[in-house]
């Protein structure tokens, strides 16, 4: 078991603490925070429910994978994007 106390040296560090392993994780964090701020009136509760479900659904999945799944669930579940929009875009 590793707790990854020192972690990888990927940016960004914030006051010496590492919150992300890779730039895409930082980006999808910012994307979710932006969506919550702009589209949900800064209310994190709906996203938090999706995140809790995403983690409960697959507890061993890496955290930022669950985060991404939660964001997709949030925007699809509230009708901001169509159900297959992301899968279709990836297939293009």
């Amino acid at each position: 078991m590793t707790l990854d106390l020192d972690g990888a040296s990927a940016p960004p560090r914030r006051n010496g603490e590492l919150a992300f392993d890779a730039p895409w994780q930082y980006r999808v964090f910012g994307l979710a925070a932006g969506v919550v701020e702009r589209r949900f009136d800064d209310d994190w509760a709906p996203f938090r429910r999706c995140l809790k479900d995403a983690i409960a659904d697959r507890p061993q999945r890496p955290y930022w994978d669950s985060w991404t799944a939660a964001l997709e669930e949030l925007v699809v579940g509230t009708g901001l994007l169509g159900p297959d929009a992301v899968s279709r875009r990836i297939a293009d």
Binding site: R27, V28, F29, L31, G34, E37, R38, V75, L81
Partner: peptide, 30 residues
Amino acid sequence: VERRAVALEELLVEQGLISHEDIDAVQQEY
């Protein structure tokens, strides 16, 4: 998963629901 994250950002920006600059600003704030 990274491709999904990129696709999510592209789609949300194309729909006018958020801008790349919004995301930059939020990151900066945090």
